[in-house]
């Protein structure tokens, strides 16, 4: 599904987060303020993927937490579907939670080890007080099928799954309430390369099927290239460059973006081209000898 235009689904305006701590001198020291996120603004439209990339300390995860309303901003505002949710509580916050779900980096630490997959997947509905249509077991199995897990394993525990499978459980849980925005905070960073590629493919397929939007937080530009429609590059708490994915990669305008792109390790392009040419020849049926 292509990104639709029109009203933004999520709109952040000058989001700011300042932390204060005691400076040198311990409890007697002066309070020192540190601005982790400095007046960050962005829009996410329905059905599109905005990736926020940056290195450690860039403020990308703090931005994600504020967008997910897991952390109060010090300043700025957040609108969801035209409604100001900056200070939303009670029923308004519950509505927001039904529409916005989060997938975390470490699948094992974000899944309760003592709960079965069914209980984990149904938890968001339980919190929302929603009765699953068709019953808990049926919805669990449907969700497991959608993320490529064996539905017969609904009574197993997280430890019985591999890292990639556990992350699929985390994704299925995010889908349970039918969200309009899924925030992925380094959701594939902890996974092995081959598993990472599969999970990225899954995330893309789910978006095509259901049309929700992603806010995708990552430190890895190569991963972002594979999933995002638009990219915002963060450094030192600010967005230094934002634009369509293709444009930012092909024609980076900010010096920091250029440094970041240049630092990505690359396989020798000549070797890679040779390998792909070989693979194409091998998969092209016209090159194969006729049978019989």
């Amino acid at each position: 599904m292509s990104a639709s235009s029109g009203e933004p689904l999520l709109s952040a305006r000058e989001l700011t987060k300042t932390f204060t701590s005691r400076g040198p001198g311990g409890v007697l020291g002066r309070r020192v303020a540190f601005t982790a996120v400095d007046r960050v603004s962005f829009d996410i439209r329905a059905g599109e993927t905005l990736a926020v990339v940056g290195e450690s300390g860039s403020g990308k995860s703090t931005t994600a937490r504020m967008a997910a309303k897991l952390m109060e901003p010090t300043g700025g505002s957040l609108e969801f579907a035209g409604e100001d949710v900056t200070r939303a509580e009670g029923p308004a916050l519950a509505r927001f939670r039904k529409d916005v779900q989060v997938v975390f980096q470490d699948p094992y630490s974000s899944l309760n080890p003592r709960h079965t997959v069914e209980r984990i997947l149904m938890a968001p509905l339980d919190y929302q007080g929603i009765a699953p249509k068709g019953g808990r077991r049926a919805l669990t199995k449907e969700l497991m099928e959608r993320v490529g897990l064996d539905p017969d394993h609904s009574q197993r525990y997280p430890a019985q799954f591999s890292g990639g499978q556990a992350q699929r459980i985390g994704i299925a849980r995010a889908l349970a309430v039918g969200p309009r925005l899924v925030i992925c905070d380094e959701a594939v960073s902890a996974l092995d390369m081959s598993v990472r590629a599969q999970v990225l493919d899954l995330l893309r397929r789910l978006q095509r099927e259901s049309g929700f939007a992603y806010l995708f937080i990552a430190h890895d530009l190569a991963v972002v290239r594979r999933i995002a429609h638009r990219v915002a590059v963060m450094s030192g708490g600010r967005i230094v460059e934002a634009g369509p994915c293709e444009r930012v990669f092909a024609d980076p305008r900010d010096p920091y973006t250029r440094t970041l792109l240049a630092a990505i390790p690359r396989i020798n392009p000549a070797w890679d081209r040779a390998r792909r040419a070989r693979a194409d020849r091998a998969s092209d049926p016209s090159q194969e000898a006729p049978h019989g």
Partner: peptide, 20 residues
Amino acid sequence: FSDPHHPYTRALLESVPRID
């Protein structure tokens, strides 16, 4: 890198996201 013989090596190389 240019002529991996084993299917697993090929799969690993396929999974490296390209950025260029």
